[in-house]
């Protein structure tokens, strides 16, 4: 039930932060009776109320969610902390991609991302993996940049040559 408690607290925090932002929306002479902050304030209160219910239920130890086979798989509690670190690594790779793509360019960055993720997910660092990464990035470039005309960043390369 600690997870429900955590979700409840997170919901409460979100409701509070969101309400503060909503309350800071300036007045406008063009506004209607409800106003730009009207529904957001209601949403914040509803979320806070629901969060409190969830917290209360989890503290009382009442089974809020009957655990069924349908419930999405969550990592097993054993070695849970280590298992929870793995997604962080995956996210970091995405973050690195976002931060370097403007300078290194789409193809190079994407090849790097594919290679790194393949390795991280248990693939071996082989020549084949490198070739697949480069070929994959080239394929994405053909698809998105050449065919669909999406202006993915070219990077610094065009200026160098």
């Amino acid at each position: 039930m600690t997870r429900d408690l955590g979700f409840g607290c997170a919901g409460l925090a979100l409701a509070g932060g969101y309400y503060a932002l909503a309350a800071a929306i300036p007045d406008s002479a063009l506004a209607d009776a409800v106003g730009p902050a009207g529904l957001p304030a209601i949403y914040a209160f509803v979320l806070a109320g629901l969060s409190l219910i969830l917290i209360a239920q989890s503290i009382r130890g009442r089974p809020v969610a009957p655990v069924s086979a349908a419930a999405p798989t969550a990592p097993a509690s054993a070695s849970a902390s280590q298992a929870l670190l793995r997604p962080v690594g995956l996210l970091l790779m995405g973050a690195v991609y976002v931060s370097v793509v403007s300078s290194l360019g789409y193809v190079v960055s994407l090849a790097g991302l594919i290679f790194a993720v393949t390795w991280y997910q248990g693939g071996s660092v082989t020549r084949q993996a490198a070739i697949v990464s480069v070929a994959g990035a080239a394929l994405f470039w053909v698809l998105f940049v050449r065919l669909l005309g999406i202006p993915h960043p070219p990077g610094v390369w065009p200026d160098l040559f």
Partner: peptide, 13 residues
Amino acid sequence: PYLTAFIYALVVS
């Protein structure tokens, strides 16, 4: 591993 990497690449693109 390849599948995950390519889905990731597809999403960011």
